[in-house]
Amino acid sequence: MIREQSARAIRLSSLPMVCVAAVVARQSAWADAAQGSPSIFAPASTPASSILGLSLFVLSITGGIFFTVGGLLAWAIIRYRARRDDDGSEPAQIYGSTQVELAWTVIPILIVVVLFLTTARIIFAIQDAPKPPAALDVTVVGHQFWWEFRYPKLGIVTANELHVPVSSTNDPKPTYLHLLSSDVDHSFWVPQLAGKTDLIPNHPNDTWIDPLHTGVYLGQCAQFCGVEHAKMLLRVYVDTPEQFAAWVNKQKQPGVQDASVAAGRHVFETQACTNCHRITGTAATGTFGPDLTHLASRATIASGAALNTPENLRSWINAPDHFKPGALMPAMQLNDEQVDQLVAYLTTLH
């Protein structure tokens, strides 16, 4: 039902707006060329595409108003400029006209009625969409300055990189996100998948996505949340059903126990790391920082601020301020040997 409605909204909008469509098409091509630009004109999920349909409709109406009123204004300014050979007399004084005032009051009212009804339909279609039983549940917890993802039915906890299965019109598999915050306000925004919804302490919110194409979608926190708000980045991996099942399977395992890096694990377990981080199967049970049980399965560290390479891990442990000045992780003050051992351990946590 939802999809039908949005499709209709898109059809509705496609009629009167040749020039707008041209601008948008150029925009999208540009966005594609700019590798992975999270453009709202390249939707990959139902909420984002219904919004795009609605926005093109609104853009065509407002564009029409702009060209009409702007055109009249420009014409009046050019036509009624004082000429060089002006005789200095005053033009005819016109004080107003009730009929004209009435006309330009009624026409905007009609436009508002149309815009409001179209908007209301999409609000209800997105916000009140019934949740199908096959939907995946994820609880998103915003932290200064990283994302925690919990899959309550699957028993998985991970951070900063959300994995969801691809959905399709025949076999809908939407993901419903329950949004919480552990400290200040944040906002979950992946433009290609859905509009943003805020994460507010004491005020749980919900939103949903149903990505129709596999791939990585970029986003970031969209509500100012403190010093490192800019580096509270977000990645959503849309997997095929098989990839997703494999990922789930792996994430359910406890942390890898590799005897060759036992020294590193010892460092981890005997330092302050355990106060904030958790690695299942070890003594580390902290919850202030990201869960590191499967750290090596993630492409980035520091909430997307750096790629997950051994060099970057080293540098992050030694001085988090190098990537994220103001991040809440302290510099760990370990000696070189300890850091080597620790990094070697962390890179085994697949």
Binding site: I40, P47, A48, S50, I51, L54, S55, V58, L59, T62, I65, F66, V69, G70, L73, I77, L115, T119, I122, I123, I126, S187, W189, P191, A194, G195, K196, T197, A222, Q223
Partner: peptide
């Protein structure tokens, strides 16, 4: 005159922002 053109555009982008679903994208 600059004001008239710019305020026309500002009013129209205001209409765009008032469209709640589009606002979910454009907000902030």
């Amino acid at each position: 005159i600059g004001f008239l053109f710019q305020f026309l555009i500002a009013g129209l982008t205001g209409i765009m922002l008032s469209v709640a679903p589009w606002n979910w994208q454009l907000h902030n």
